[in-house]
Computed example of a mutant assay.
Amino acid sequence: MIQHFRPALVLLLLFTALTGLAYPFAIAGVASVAFPSQAGGSLMVHDGTVIGSALIGQNFASEVYFQPRPSATNTPDPADSSKTIDAPYNAANSSGSNLGPTSKALVDRVKAAAEAKLAAGWKAPLPADAFTTSASGLDPEISPQNALAQVPLVAEARGLDEAKLRALVAARTHGRWLGLIGEPRVNVLALNIALDALE
């Protein structure tokens, strides 16, 4: 029995060291040299201060900024740990709503979100990502249509020319990768940093 146990233990320790330590450290080292920004979390810096990551959305509450799509993330309720409360863009608790397409709760939530956008001055038709959440709840990007729909509101809140903001959105729009993969998108944090730089 011992003669079978010893080689198994040696192999377990060897492969744990190789696949659990050596390989991840080697890949992290190569990535930090070849792709330093991405390996470091794609951090975004403004005026010498790290203000976020290009990979994780942030909640912008002020009307003077472009808004991200809604987020379904939550956090435990401080008053009752058996319940949760909404916590938009909570990176510690990435999640979608997990509600199916026939869910009345989902239909009611989407309808309420769309009505709130229209009441806030958005013009119909609304882009779908203006009132639907992403699967992760942390999506940092919106569609160009969503950004352009917000231009009149942000222009009014800041007293800026709409044409100038449309040009800013166009300049910050990323197309499909290799012209084929994905959809055109706008990173909300990068757009809002560029927006602050206009003034």
Results as ranks from 00 to 15, higher is better:
Thr132Val: 03
Leu118Ser: 07
Leu138Gly: 06
Pro140Ala: 03
Ala130Trp: 06
Ala114Ile: 00
Ala120Arg: 00
Pro125Trp: 01
Thr132Trp: 05
Gly121Glu: 10
Pro140Met: 01
Lys123Leu: 10
Ser134Arg: 02
Asp108Glu: 03
Pro127Lys: 02
Ser143Thr: 14
Leu138Phe: 15
Thr133Asn: 14
Val110Phe: 12
Ser134Val: 09
Leu126Asp: 10
Pro144Thr: 02
Thr132Gly: 08
Asp108Cys: 00
Lys111Leu: 15
Asp108Gly: 01
Ala124Thr: 11
Ser136His: 06
Glu115Lys: 05
Glu141Asn: 12
Val110Lys: 06
Gly137Ala: 03
Ala112Trp: 04
Asp108Val: 01
Pro127Asp: 08
Pro125Thr: 01
Ala116Phe: 15
Pro144Ile: 01
Gly121Ala: 07
Ala116Pro: 12
Phe131Gln: 01
Pro125His: 07
Gly137Thr: 01
Ala116Lys: 14
Leu138Gln: 06
Ala119Tyr: 06
Thr132Phe: 05
Ser134Trp: 10
Ala128Arg: 01
Asp139Pro: 05
Ser136Asp: 13
Lys123Asn: 08
Phe131Cys: 03
Ala112Asp: 11
Ser134Leu: 10
Pro140His: 05
Ala135Ser: 14
Ala113Met: 10
Leu138Lys: 08
Gly121Cys: 06
Ala112Met: 05
Lys111Thr: 15
Leu138Cys: 09
Ala135Arg: 04
Ala120Trp: 01
Ala124Phe: 08
Arg109Ile: 05
Arg109Ser: 15
Ala124Asn: 09
Ala119Ser: 11
Ser143Glu: 13
Asp139Met: 07
Asp108Leu: 02
Arg109Asp: 15
Ala130Leu: 14
Lys123Phe: 05
Pro144Ser: 04
Ala128Thr: 13
Asp108Pro: 02
Phe131Ala: 09
Lys123Tyr: 09
Lys123Asp: 10
Ala119Trp: 09
Arg109Pro: 13
Thr133Leu: 08
Ala130Glu: 13
Ala113Phe: 09
Ser134Gly: 14
Ser134Phe: 12
Lys123Thr: 13
Thr132Asn: 10
Glu141Cys: 13
Gly137Leu: 03
Ala119Thr: 12
Asp129Thr: 04
Ser136Ala: 14
Ala130Thr: 14
Leu118Arg: 05
Pro127Tyr: 05
Ala114Pro: 03
Leu118Asn: 03
Ala116Thr: 12
Val110Trp: 10
Ala113Gly: 11
Ser134His: 08
Asp129Pro: 11
Pro125Ile: 00
Ala114Ser: 04
Ala128His: 07
Pro125Ala: 06
Asp129Gln: 00
Ala128Met: 10
Ala119Val: 07
Lys117Trp: 02
Gly137Asn: 00
Asp108Ala: 01
Glu141Trp: 10
Ala116His: 12
Ser143Leu: 07
